[in-house]
Amino acid sequence: MGLTFSLLLVAALILAVFLGVEALGLSFLFAIVIPYLAIATFIIGFILRVVKWGKTPVPFRIPTTCGQQKSLPWIKQNKIDNPFSTAGVVARMALEVLFFRSLFRNTKAELVDGERLTYQWEKWLWLGGLIFHWSMLIVVTRHLRIFLDPVPGFVRIIEKFDGFFTVDLQNVYITGILLLAAVTFLFIRRVVIPQVRYISFAADYFPLLLIGSIAASGILMKYFFRVDLVAIKELTVGLFSFSPVVPQGVSALFYIHLFLVCVLISYIPFSKIMHMGGIFLSPTRNMANNSRAVRHINPWNYPVKVHTYEEYENEFRDKMRAVGLPLEKDGSEKEAAAAKE
């Protein structure tokens, strides 16, 4: 159901922009109004969400430790997977964010012969995820060429390496192809593996289909149905200098690409794609395991009702005295007095 819904939704979005531009002539809407709205939604929504997270306190120090703690000096500590210092945390987070350290641990459990549990090599999800995210980053960076004039040097360098391969004398950007391949892998995996399909709903299929469609439309524009890049740059630079003009002679394919990007970025603050911000704030990963050495402060720590030693001794004084336990108050005289009365 989630799958069908997502497919229909993406198809409807594509149809909407196609009809909007081709039949209704709503170029102004799709070229200028919607991009502005999308960017505003993205920036405001993203900031609000991160601020909401950031403002929520971290009452306890709860890192998930994945290696030896720092204790006795002759025991070798795992400084990255069980960091004691900020430097260790930075290293742990860098490995997590840049190389998906935790996902790299992944294994596949299988019950062999109905009695033996085995844990097998399973790095495909890690590999697919890593290719997907890195390709996405490079593709987005490459797109800075369309927004910035002059084109920054690092963008040119990235383009040079990315376009190392040529087909029919034309540079082929490998990351574009990898992005489409990886997103296809992630989608197929989600549909084909029964357990993963079982946990998935529309919000899982929709972004994959959306990103897949964006990548596909981008590839079509680059290699098969060339678009007028000068006109497009005129639009983007205009958008960023707040003097936008609707470009002339730009194909519907471009509008589809642009509109889907707008949908994607405005969808981010309301969706699981926020994990790109969340990972930095995850308390099980971004905290040092030094809670016995440095007291962590809980801003809302409040006094609680406890059963005091005094109450305890009052209840058990006689029994304690009978087995010779030391007492704070030996109530025997008082009791004797009470008995007299």
Partner: peptide, 19 residues
């Protein structure tokens, strides 16, 4: 009160690695 709870509610992508 718990940033952990907020983050854990918002960021799961249901990749299934935990399953």
């Amino acid at each position: 009160k718990f940033r952990s709870l907020r983050i854990f509610m918002d960021t799961c992508v249901r990749c299934g690695a935990c399953a």
